[in-house]
Design a protein around this nucleic acid. Structure first.
Lengths: 154, 154
DNA sequence: CCTGAAAAGTTGACATCATGAACCTTTCAT
DNA sequence: ATGAAAGGTTCATGATGTCAACTTTTCAGG
C-alpha cells in the first residue's frame, strides 16, 4: 500500500480528508464535553484538571506548565492559586534556581487526578463499537498521524 | 504493571484501548490548539467560530445552538451578541413561533467560517502521513465510533 | 374569552479563563 | 558591581460559562 500521492498536500484537500476533519471535530467536541463533565463532578474546572494531570509525572515549574498548555504564565498563576487554596498542589522554590517555583501535586491532588483519569470513559463508549482488530488498525493510523506532529505530552 | 483487573463492570480497558485513548487525547489537544489559532487569526474566539460553524447548515434557534454546544442558553446570548455586533450573524424572529430567535450567518460570517474551515490544515499535516485508502479506513472507523454517541452535527 | 403554566431569550451577578503590560526577585554575564 | 535577562506575580480587561430572575409569547383549560 504505497501512499497515494495526493500531490497537493497544501493545495486542496480531497473529499475524504474533509470528512475526516469533520469527524475529528466531532470527536474533539465529544471528548471535551466528557472531560469537562468528569472534572466538574470532582469540582474541578477543565483547566485545573489539565494542570493536575501534567503533575502526574512529577513537580513542574510554572513556566513549563504554561508552555505545555500553550498559554501565558500569568494565566497559570491563577489556576495554581485556586488549586493550592483547595490543597491539591503546593508551590516550592527550586533549590538550584530560586526564581523557579516548582508546583507539585499533593496526595489529595494526585488521587483526584487519577480518579478523573479512570472515570474518563470517553473512549470506552465510542470504542466499544469497534472490534479488537479494528482498534489496532485505528491505533496504528493515529500513531502515524502523530509521529509527524510534536505531541504535547511527550 | 498492574494488569490485575480490579473489576470488569462494563468493559475492561485492554492495552490497545488504553493506547488509543491516549493517542486520541493527544490528537484532540493538537486539533484544539490549531482550531483556536485559526479562529484567532480571523479575530474570532473558539466559541464564536463554533457557533458560526453550526450555522453553515442554515439558521438555527438560540436554544438549539445551546443544546448542540451543551451549554446554557444565556451563554449563547453573549456569543451571538458579539457575532452580531461584528456583522457575522443576524437575529430574526421565527414566523411560526415569535418566541424563537433564528440566528443566521451573514455572507460575511459564512465566508469567514468557510475560510476558517479551509485553513484548518490540522489534518493536512497529520493526515499527509496516510495514504488515500488509509484515510478512507480511518474515516469509516471514526464514523462508527461517532454513530453510537450523540454527535453534535447530527 | 380569560387565566395561568410553560417555553424561548434576555439580563444581571458572579467565578473562571486568558492575554498583555508593569513589576519584583533572582540569576548571570560582563 | 552593574545591568540585562529570566521566572513569577499583579493588575486591568475581555470572553466564557453558570445560575436565578425576568419579559414575551404560546398554549391548555375552564
Amino acid at each position: 500500500m504505497e501512499t497515494q500521492p495526493t500531490q497537493a498536500a497544501t493545495a486542496e484537500p480531497d473529499e475524504i480528508t474533509r470528512e475526516v476533519v469533520d469527524l475529528m471535530a466531532n470527536l474533539v467536541a465529544l471528548f471535551h464535553r466528557e472531560y469537562e463533565e468528569a472534572a466538574a463532578a470532582r469540582s474541578l474546572t477543565g483547566a485545573q484538571a489539565k494542570v493536575l494531570a501534567l503533575l502526574r509525572r512529577g513537580p513542574m515549574p510554572m513556566r513549563q506548565i504554561a508552555q505545555t498548555l500553550s498559554c501565558e504564565p500569568s494565566n497559570i498563576t491563577g489556576i495554581v492559586d485556586r488549586l493550592e487554596t483547595r490543597g491539591f498542589v503546593t508551590r516550592a522554590a527550586d533549590r538550584q534556581d530560586r526564581r523557579v517555583k516548582l508546583v507539585a501535586a499533593t496526595d489529595t491532588g494526585a488521587a483526584a487526578s487519577e480518579e478523573l483519569r479512570e472515570s474518563l470513559n470517553f473512549a470506552r463508549e465510542p470504542l466499544a463499537a469497534l472490534g479488537h482488530d479494528e482498534r489496532a488498525v485505528l491505533r496504528d493510523l493515529l500513531q502515524r498521524m502523530l509521529a509527524g506532529a510534536a505531541g504535547p505530552g511527550a
